[in-house]
């Protein structure tokens, strides 16, 4: 085999490279289903469909907690005082600046809908506690105001507002 011509060499190298490349592509493609199966399955996705919540039973100053996609959602019927407090704070002074108006639906200003998961490490803040008439997280002491905005403590961001819309004056659809 000492007399192998260089042309034959190239052909052989090409064959080796092609085989290796095709095998590598196959191996990579085979990994795809193994990873993809970890994503939520069809029943989980279907169960995460939007839900409707009736607001009529929630009196002023009260709140309820509903679950959507396994997450607790606080729906709070805020008092006039709570709304005013939230709107009188200069937005720029907040750790995560956002106006109260941007966090509620216009015309339904008393309704605050937020995902009740502390943006620090995922504990559930307690409503109507803390110094800002909003939420207090017992895990590491983060405090949120009556608009769900972080005011103090280690949490970096405001409580997120889930996607929702008013179906009627007393009914919202979350998701």
């Amino acid at each position: 085999m000492t007399t192998t011509s260089s042309a034959e060499h190239t052909r052989r190298d090409f064959l080796f490279v092609a085989t290796g490349a095709v095998a590598a592509v196959g191996a990579a493609a085979a990994v795809w289903p193994l990873i993809s199966q970890m994503n939520p399955d069809a029943s989980t996705i279907a169960a995460g469909a939007p839900i409707e919540v009736d607001l009529a039973p929630i009196a002023e100053g009260q709140d309820i907690k509903v679950f959507w996609r396994g997450k607790p959602i606080y729906i709070m019927n805020r008092t006039k005082k709570q709304v005013d407090e939230a709107r009188s704070v200069p937005t720029a002074s907040l750790p995560d600046p956002a106006s109260d108006q941007s966090r509620v639906k216009e015309g339904h200003d008393q309704w605050l809908v937020v995902i009740g998961i502390c943006t620090h490490l995922g504990c559930i803040p307690i409503a109507h506690e803390g110094e800002y008439d909003g939420f207090f997280c017992p895990c590491h002491g983060s405090q949120y105001d009556s608009s769900g905005r972080v005011r103090r403590g280690p949490a970096p961001l405001n409580l997120p507002v889930p996607p929702y819309a008013f179906v009627s004056d007393s009914k919202i659809k979350i998701g």
């Binding site: 289903p33 993809s36 199966q37 994503n39 989980t44």
Partner: peptide, 10 residues
Amino acid sequence: VRDVNFGWLL
């Protein structure tokens, strides 16, 4: 088989 992604394959 029905719901998991590629569950039928696995």
